[in-house]
């Protein structure tokens, strides 16, 4: 299947921007589960998910897929910290979704559980988001102090 057909199938009206590092498209109303099912059916390959905070709130989710050597970068936005999980369709996405929760407290609907991956089970999710609140030049150790002030275990314990 050609990249253009993928956008038609997903009813994405924007066109691909074709660059040296792959195909890029912004699809604010993307049905991520429809995308996952379609790309599974054409034997695309999961690459990863990049989550970036959007100034003013919300997140930009950039799904990266490999389609016969072409890198497809499909971006969507979520105004709140919740989106649909695709891990039941693509088990490959499981760890990336857990990591997104660790870093940005992003929740994925449809999962039975979303355990911490890099953080300790008792850690509060959203480490990167919380430390951003401290300012761009904040000392990374301040993240642990945020945890301590909330009555959680300090750094040095088991993950």
């Amino acid at each position: 299947m050609e990249p253009e057909t993928i956008l038609e199938s997903l009813r994405v009206t924007a066109a691909w921007e074709v660059r040296g590092d792959g195909h890029w498209v912004e699809a604010p109303d993307l049905d991520v589960r429809a995308m996952a099912r379609l790309l599974l059916s054409v034997e695309a390959r999961w690459v990863t998910l990049t989550v970036s905070p959007v100034p003013g709130g919300g997140f930009r989710l950039l799904y990266h897929w490999d389609l016969a050597g072409r890198l497809l970068n499909i971006a969507t936005t979520v105004p709140e910290g919740l989106t649909q999980s695709i891990a039941d369709i693509w088990p490959a996405a499981d760890w990336a979704e857990r990591e997104a929760r660790d870093y940005y407290a992003l929740e994925f609907a449809g999962r039975d559980e979303l355990p911490a991956l890099m953080l300790r089970p008792e850690d509060e999710p959203g480490l990167f988001s919380r430390t951003r609140e401290l300012g761009h030049d904040a000392d990374p150790a301040d993240a642990a102090r945020v945890d301590a002030s909330r009555g959680r275990r300090d750094a040095g314990g088991e993950p």
Partner: peptide, 16 residues
């Protein structure tokens, strides 16, 4: 499987 014992937040560091 449990990982994260060597988590260094390199992505976070790289943005600073």
């Amino acid at each position: 499987i449990t990982v994260g014992f060597n988590f260094r937040a390199i992505e976070w560091l790289a943005e600073r």
